[in-house]
Design a protein around this nucleic acid. Structure first.
Lengths: 72, 72
DNA sequence: CCTGAATACCAATTCAAA
DNA sequence: TTTGAATTGGTATTCAGG
């Protein structure tokens, strides 16, 4: 089910550094959610997760930026 | 020069919705900064800008998320 | 160092399908 | 309405060079 999976995604990205959607898809599969990258991409859009270059140099999915709502 | 260009990038992403690095590169060129996507990619990493799926569905570059520092 | 061109990699979307 | 496979589009990186 979609909602449970998206919950799991939030949990996962909070627990560990996830660099790619494939990686996330694999972790979900390990949790019993059978999905492909295409679905993960859609989930990410719905959850409005951001991909940020971390301070360590690597990329990481994360919750949305504070100032992403309006311009000035 | 690099710093001036990165300043300009910050200004641009704050002023308008920028969806791709190519788009950003074009805007920079229009401002007199001659760059390609490769350099924009590096600047984005150095500035730690995030790419977020906006509420409107489109992608947008934005300043970094509030919670992107540590895990729990 | 910093950069561009080319490339390899990653992500969004299309197109069926259920 | 949700999904996967395949495709297309976008980005990170390599590799060479200034």
């Amino acid at each position: 089910m979609k909602n449970a999976r998206q919950e799991q995604i939030l949990k996962l990205i909070h627990e560990q550094e996830i660099g790619t959607q494939e990686e996330l898809a694999e972790l979900l599969n390990a949790c019993g959610f059978q999905v492909t990258q295409a679905t993960v991409s859609r989930d990410i859009r719905q959850l409005e997760l951001a991909k940020v270059p971390g301070t360590n140099g690597r990329m990481r999915y994360s919750n949305r930026p504070e100032d992403s709502r309006e311009l000035n």
